[in-house]
């Protein structure tokens, strides 16, 4: 019996573009981690590639859950609880996962646990690292930029978030205006290596004391667009690599400085990175160097656990399960 003595959590994630399911044992041992869009053989899911639309989630979710269980060598009876992301995200998309999870919990008579999407990104680190607490975590993705203080796996405090655009969104939009394609993060990371980050000095939004852990990337995006407009109007060539490097340096400087500030003022032993932007090489490098000066460690998940997945949901769900923090069958989804 594979499941003997181990607590298996089935995680389900459908907060935005991805339909995903995973089985995690004891909150850290990943038995399966299925993301519909990344499965090579789409025939497994009736040929449907999930996109933004919630109806697409609906078409694949049954198969994704079954696949996650079979990959894990587990049956429904082996599962201790069902964990699901219930927000923030696109409500129509979230409800597909939430209703799937509720149905399973009810039919199997197993506890249901509701996981916050941002907290699940944090938990991706627990799948691969033994984290030293207290810690500070920077969650930066296409939809989120949040700084959190973590006293333990279960005691957390939101320090600040973005007032306008998320960091990953700024990467995507700047990549688009530079004609670098989608997703923008890896494209900018790559071309910026060949650029001079000091050729263009873009604004860094370090806001005042009251909002010291809040972020803003909208002004930076506009500044990049203004530079491009001016160059185009003068008929000058666009030094894409320099602009990308200058933009990336501005984003990274702000992320690193605010994270360092939070880590120092909270006496953190470790800083965690999470979300798609955690894969940015300049961010990792600069953060590691900066934190090393204060003897603070840096952890981040491998790339496949940085983007949306259900293993992180199962991992975060395990902690809730252990504390008996169950959700009712009237669980709803929320956008913000």
């Amino acid at each position: 019996m594979a499941a003997m003595n181990k607590i298996l959590i089935l995680g389900i994630e459908s907060s935005c573009d991805e339909t995903a399911a995973a089985v995690v044992a004891d909150g850290r041992e990943m038995r399966s981690n299925i993301i519909a869009s990344q499965v090579e053989d789409h025939k497994k899911f009736g040929g449907v590639v999930p996109e933004i639309a919630s109806r697409k989630h609906l078409e694949v979710i049954n198969d994704v859950v079954e696949y996650a269980l079979s990959e894990a060598g587990a049956g429904f009876a082996d599962i201790s609880a069902v964990a699901v992301t219930n927000g923030p995200g696109l409500v129509g998309a979230l409800l597909v996962g939430v209703n799937m999870a509720k149905t399973l919990a009810y039919a199997l008579q197993k506890p249901l646990v509701a996981v916050n999407h941002v907290m699940s990104h944090v938990a991706a680190n627990y799948l691969v690292h033994t984290v030293q607490f207290p810690a500070v975590c920077l969650v930066a993705s296409g939809g989120h930029t949040s700084l959190l203080y973590l006293l333990s796996r279960s005691e957390t405090e939101l320090l600040g978030t973005t007032r306008d655009d998320a960091a990953g969104e700024a990467f995507d939009k700047v990549a688009r205006v530079l004609g670098l394609g989608y997703p923008g993060g890896p494209a900018i990371d790559k071309i910026a290596m060949q650029g001079n980050p000091d050729a263009f000095r873009f604004p860094r939004a370090f806001s005042g004391q009251d909002h010291s852990y809040e972020f803003s990337f909208s002004g930076l995006k506009s500044a990049v667009i203004n530079v491009l407009h001016n160059l185009e109007q003068r008929g000058e060539p666009i030094p894409k690599a320099d602009i990308a490097a200058g933009f990336q340096a501005a984003v990274v400087d702000v992320l690193v400085e605010k994270t360092r500030l939070a880590a120092k003022s909270k006496g953190a032993k470790t800083v965690l990175l999470a979300g798609g932007v955690a894969a940015n090489r300049q961010l990792r490098l600069q953060l590691r160097e900066t934190l090393a000066l204060d003897g603070i460690g840096l952890n981040y998940p491998p790339p496949e656990l940085c983007t949306d997945n259900a293993a992180m949901v199962a991992c975060a769900g395990y902690d809730l399960y252990k504390r008996n923090e169950y959700a009712g069958l009237d669980l709803n989804a929320f956008t913000v």
Partner: peptide, 15 residues
């Protein structure tokens, strides 16, 4: 009164 962030990624933000 809550923060009004860009809905680009989530498509819809309801307040």
């Amino acid at each position: 009164t809550s923060p009004v962030q860009s809905p680009t990624f989530t498509i819809l933000l309801a307040h």
